[in-house]
Simulated scan of single mutants.
Amino acid sequence: MASGALMKAQMLGLLTRCLQFHIIGAFAVSLGLQLSKFAVAEPRKKACADFYRGYDSVKDFEEMRKAGIFQSAK
């Protein structure tokens, strides 16, 4: 048998290398989620605030009542 046929298993520094990979991945995922907050959540909050700034719930209720959506409020 040839003694150099199989590579020696790397045990020295294996945990460090695996942790480095996972820490970099976790940092990238958390950074992406934080950026998505500014790309998705903030515009959505602004759109909701703009909608409710001029929203009249009584007027909307009266329109739905006249349209016949509510059977109990005639």
Rank of each mutant, 00 (worst) to 15 (best):
A9D: 13
F27N: 10
A26L: 08
M1I: 10
A67Y: 07
C18I: 13
M11I: 06
A28C: 06
G32K: 06
F51P: 02
I24Q: 08
M1C: 10
L15M: 03
G54V: 05
L35M: 14
L12G: 03
I69G: 01
K59F: 05
D56R: 03
A73L: 14
G25K: 04
G13R: 02
E63I: 08
G32Y: 11
G68H: 06
A39V: 12
G54I: 04
S57W: 03
G13D: 11
R53S: 09
L31R: 11
C18R: 12
Q71D: 15
Q20L: 05
M1T: 12
L35N: 07
R65Q: 15
K37H: 13
D60A: 14
F21T: 10
R65A: 11
F51A: 08
S72R: 08
I24L: 07
A67L: 10
R65H: 06
K8E: 15
G25Q: 04
D60F: 06
K45N: 13
Q34K: 12
A2M: 08
A41N: 11
L6E: 08
S72K: 09
S30I: 14
D60K: 07
H22R: 06
I24T: 09
S72I: 09
V29S: 08
T16V: 05
S3H: 06
S36N: 13
M1G: 15
A39Y: 11
K59I: 02
C18M: 12
M64L: 12
L19Q: 07
K66Y: 01
R53Y: 04
D50F: 01
L14T: 02
Q20W: 05
F21K: 06
A41M: 10
S57H: 07
K46E: 15
K8V: 11
C48Q: 11
A67W: 04
C48N: 10
A41S: 13
A2Q: 10
K66W: 00
L33C: 14
I23C: 01
A39P: 01
A39R: 09
R17W: 02
Q20A: 09
E62S: 02
R65P: 04
A28P: 00
Q71G: 06
F51K: 15
A9N: 11
G54C: 03
F21M: 05
R44C: 01
R44P: 01
F21D: 10
S72V: 09
L15N: 02
V58C: 05
H22S: 01
D50M: 07
R17P: 01
L14Q: 04
L35A: 13
G32D: 00
Y52F: 15
D50Q: 15
I69H: 12
M11Y: 02
A39W: 13
Y55G: 00
Y55W: 09
L6P: 00
V29W: 08
S57A: 15
V40F: 15
D56W: 03
R65G: 02
S3M: 06
I69M: 11
Q34Y: 13
A9L: 12
K74H: 09
R65I: 01
K8G: 03
K66H: 04
L19C: 06
K45Q: 14
A49Q: 12
Q34E: 13
F27C: 11
K74P: 14
G25A: 04
K37S: 05
A26W: 06
S72E: 14
Q71K: 15
S30N: 12
H22K: 01
